[in-house]
Design a protein around this nucleic acid. Structure first.
Lengths: 215, 215
DNA sequence: GAAATAGTGTCTCTCAGACACTATAAA
DNA sequence: TTTATAGTGTCTGAGAGACACTATTTC
């Protein structure tokens, strides 16, 4: 059995900037699609990577310097038409980071709504990631990963609102969040401003908390 | 760039039998894992299959004769350790069928709880599929695909109960289902028995309906 | 004091769970 | 009539949405 199949990993790196979800892209410097915008990604190195998630982390590290974002497998795109070189498989991952932690190097950040045409089927990958995030955020603590480690409840609520695209009631939101008990108060740390200071919070444990739909 | 990576598709075919979820497995007749139980699956044929879902359908068709079950991509398992032949990728799918439509040929049906050790990492694939089905069934019309085309509301309720592993209230269940409006009454068709006949229903359109958690 | 935002209290309306009830068949 | 299951009606308690209120800072 001889297969002639290209195996790659691509990463949809999302962050929140100027009130909207943005995705990281870079201009390709080789064929195919030379000069076009594409997601960070590349071949799996079967002599170097242990698994596909490892490949994804390597690519993120190489291209953004980010070592430990929220990272999850998205979907696999595999057919004979997506790459002019032949039958190809892309195991797609998506990653979430706080805008602060992203020093844009070789990468550009573009709003996910109204993207230009990207290389390969990368527009599809972005669409799938955005749909997944919008959907999953509605019933989980996912939104926290788009914020820095410490944040206020108002910032968290605004993050949810930007992702979901709808207003949330402050009182209901706080009731829900505090009943779920996945946040930990950062003692003695508050956000100062020209008004009443806001309490800082952070995620309690590493794992994602799932709950009933917020909206 | 030369890659030495095996690319396969495996299918977790699930059905409901004797009150419990069962998975279809077959005994392997070649190395590696010769003689062990494994999921139906195999190499992607890059000269024959258009995409990975096509591969999955081909394998289902070849090994079960089933042409159009509910079929969805599950997750991709890709690392250097899962196959003794080297770095390998398995794009896993799961399929749901009514027990009636399954004429067990070369396949065995085993309860998903308490499976023996399967070849490769196939126990992991089954676990992932079962978790996905149990989770997704709670907030969608997924359970309908484990029933024949026509079914009664009581049968549907029992199907949900078997998947979710908990009792549902008849009145609440019917309120919910009818408010969601994804079922169509099969006029003049009822299930006879030694008591009041039950109305038959079927899915209205092809696509899955998503709703708030049942439980 | 005013302005601005953080954070809480309370009312109401909806809806899920519980459960009793009615309906329609076979024997 | 009894038995068995299909299918409906009704009460209640928990919780979400709406919104008004209090709290704490800067100026």
């Amino acid at each position: 059995m001889v297969q002639n199949i290209i195996v790659t990993v691509d990463v949809v790196l999302l962050t929140l900037r100027d009130e909207r979800l943005h995705v990281a892209v870079q201009r390709r410097d080789k064929e195919p699609y030379n000069g076009q915008l594409a997601l960070p990604g590349g071949y799996i190195h079967d002599n170097e990577d242990f698994d596909a998630e490892g490949s994804a982390r390597r690519m993120l590290k190489d291209k953004t310097g980010i070592a430990a974002p929220y990272l999850e497998q998205l979907e696999t795109f595999a057919n004979s038409a997506r790459d002019p070189r032949g039958w190809s498989v892309s195991v797609a991952y998506y990653a979430l980071v706080a805008p602060e932690s992203l020093s844009v190097g070789q990468l550009d950040l573009l709003p996910v709504d109204g993207l230009p045409v990207l290389a390969f089927d990368h527009n599809k990958l972005v669409a799938a990631a955005v749909q997944r995030v919008r959907n999953k955020a509605a019933y989980s603590s996912l939104a926290c990963y788009l914020l820095p480690e410490r944040f206020t409840l108002t910032e968290l609520q605004h993050t949810y609102e930007k992702i979901l695209g709808s207003r949330l009631d402050k009182s209901s939101f706080r009731r829900k969040i505090s009943s779920l008990d996945f946040l930990e108060m950062v003692k003695d740390e508050v956000q100062a401003g020209r008004q009443r200071p806001a309490q800082f919070w952070k995620l309690k444990q590493g794992s994602l908390t799932i709950f009933d739909k917020l909206l």
